[in-house]
């Protein structure tokens, strides 16, 4: 929307916007920026660094989509959202894409009317306890005080887990990960529970990460993925296939280092050629130009590179690939073919 007079914007917005409700893709192009919803701060997934630049695994997905659509990986406006505001922000159009550790569930997909475009991290809910507590299994947690982020699926899983095992617990509800971390470190709760990846990321920010262990039990399935509004399938396709392109790029061996070289001319592998737009017209089908995927991959690297750079074993967060390895390597990452 054109920037108008401050007060005039109030009325103009009401008048002008009522008339035109174009597709999200057109909106984003007209705006020149992608509005991407992220967490208020979870190191490794999405958090501002000391200069206020957002970094992380989820941020990488946003940047890839921005690069594919707008040709500029920095043309992203990151909107921090809490568990409470994230869905309203997406539903109201304040953000175009929500890349925020959001679990794909039946009701969110159907009742809340969103479309999950894929899974960028297969996760599960775990528990973190101080080593000094001497707990080795989640089954030992009877009577424990548990810090839990409200408004998440983990809250419901937790209730189910303790009910199923006939155990008592005392929930301490908290709003953000930052608060959970403070309460847990202060000893106001015995254990902190959230997605295992989130636990690893939280633990990485501790002064002494080795004093805390993540219990072996994973009590739920948490497929985390980016989502868009229901109903705008063109936009959903772009987000879905940008994510798929990142995953496929790893499988095909396309990296941020060699993407320019591979994309310069058609090479030996037909699928690589189709992804990078040197063969076929996939870009046209999706409503973008031929180099869309090339830009998305060049923005932050393929899925594997993003993983290693932000949350992989060499980072403080130190997550193993596990389920999130390619299907060829024992994981369950498997993209539909680019054809």
């Amino acid at each position: 929307m054109k920037k108008t007079v401050f007060l005039g914007a109030l009325t103009l917005a009401g008048l002008a916007a009522g008339a035109a409700a174009a597709g999200t893709l057109d909106d984003v192009k007209a705006r020149g920026k992608l509005n991407c919803g992220v967490t208020t701060g979870l190191v490794g997934f999405a958090a501002p660094d000391a200069n206020g630049v957002w970094e992380g695994f989820d941020v990488g997905v946003c940047r890839a989509v921005a690069a594919a659509v707008l040709g500029d990986a920095t043309a992203v406006e990151f909107v921090p959202t809490t568990g409470k505001t994230r869905f309203t922000a997406l539903a109201s159009g304040e953000i175009d894409l929500l890349a925020r550790n959001t679990t794909w569930t039946f009701s969110r997909d159907t009742d809340l009317k969103f479309d999950f475009v894929g899974v960028n991290y297969y996760d599960g809910q775990g528990f973190m306890v101080p080593k000094a507590l001497g707990v080795t299994s989640a089954k030992d947690l009877n009577g424990a005080t548990v810090c839990i982020q409200t408004g998440t699926t983990t809250e419901l899983n937790l209730a189910d887990f303790f009910r199923k095992n006939n155990m008592e617990y005392e929930p301490v509800p908290i709003e953000t990960n930052a608060e959970g971390q403070q309460q847990y470190l202060a000893g106001a709760c015995d254990t902190y529970t959230t997605d295992a990846s989130g636990l690893a990321s939280t633990r990485a920010a501790f002064e002494n990460p080795t004093d805390h262990v993540i219990l072996p039990e994973i009590i739920s399935k948490e497929p985390l993925g980016p989502l868009v509004r229901h109903g705008d399938n063109e936009w959903g396709d772009i987000a879905r296939w940008t994510l798929n392109a990142l995953i496929a790029a790893e499988e095909m061996g396309i990296t941020s280092a060699n993407v320019a070289e591979l994309g310069a001319a058609a090479g030996g592998s037909p699928e690589v050629n189709r992804i990078l737009g040197t063969e076929g017209n996939l870009g046209e089908m999706i409503g973008l130009d031929a180099q869309w995927a090339m830009r998305a991959i060049a923005a932050g690297g393929n899925y594997g590179e993003l993983f290693e750079k932000n949350i992989g074993e060499k980072t403080p967060i130190g997550l193993a690939r596990g389920l999130n390895a390619q299907w060829t390597e024992g994981g369950i990452l498997y993209t539909p073919p680019f054809r």
Binding site: D111, L112, T150, G151, E155, L156, V172, P173, E175
Partner: peptide, 24 residues
Amino acid sequence: AIAVGYMDLTGTLGGITLNQTGRA
């Protein structure tokens, strides 16, 4: 209360219920 996680009406109905059901 919502700032300290005390489960008053804002915490239950206006907090968790709102989040879980999306019925803002």
